[in-house]
Amino acid sequence: METLFNIVVFPGMFYVLAWTVLLFWFFRKFMAALHKRVGPSFNGPAGSYQTLFDLSKLLTKESITPDGVNPYLFSMMPLLAVIIATLPTAFIPWTPDVYVIPTQYGVLALVVLIGIEPFLLFLTGFGSNNKYSFLGGIRILTQMISMETAFFLAALSPALLFGTMSLGEIVEQSSWLSFLILFPGFVLYFIALLGLLEQPPFNIPDAEQEIVYGFYTEYSGTNYFLLKLAEFAEFMAVFAGAATLFLGAYKGIFFDGYIFFFLKMLLIAMLMMTIRASTPRITMKQMLNFSWSYLVPLSLLNMAWVLMAKHFILGVGL
């Protein structure tokens, strides 16, 4: 019964859907404020039904499969993308009690599941039989290879510090001191996260002004909805990863609870949106240069820093 609850309600399908709807609405409202606009305002309190309406619209619209594509590849990928993007929720300790798969290899599972996602998106671009989609697919692959190296290295730093791969244990051992030690790692994780989630200034794979909508170009209706759902589920996985690894997940100031986890994720989302509202896109070459000349070397340095801090500050033998 509890397994069923976990799968269907929390932290399973319903939770992911609710999160998507809420985050979508929140992005719109927050962005509107930064843009000096109103944002959605007609439907429901502060336009909060708008996203629901949008979702139902997308679900009921015709999903067009273009001529000359492999229909199985074309329609399977969005579904697979959603499933893969939702899986990490099972490995994350949302509250002290809800921790569906308390494995020893939580960090590894998180990193691997997040890392597979761009491959699927590449395949959607590859399978669309469209030049713009294909360019988008190639771009996402290039970006993934260069950004995920830094992402993994940054995500491993808490595991190094606490000497465990279990997310639950990492959260339990985390403290204000560990937060300070891991802060450089958090910054690196956040920058790599922007690249991984295709957010400005790294929104190169779906650069609207350059290659239309990248790998999304040919998608419409339900398939498009699924891809968007996958995108927002991945937002959640990556934000939750950041909160768990660096910010102490559900740990709060006076009491522990899911609300703190949620606020931490929202904080990262707001940071991301503010950067999005003030930073133009850079080019592929600049991204590659930035990633391999600065981000990856810095991530390696960060690992050295964590090891040294572990030895000299926490006094744990290597």
Binding site: L34, P200, Q209
Partner: peptide, 15 residues
């Protein structure tokens, strides 16, 4: 700025 994927300037100026 729209050409570089940043719409904030356009919105502010529109205002």
């Amino acid at each position: 700025y729209n050409a570089m994927g940043l719409h904030t300037v356009g919105m502010w100026n529109m205002d």
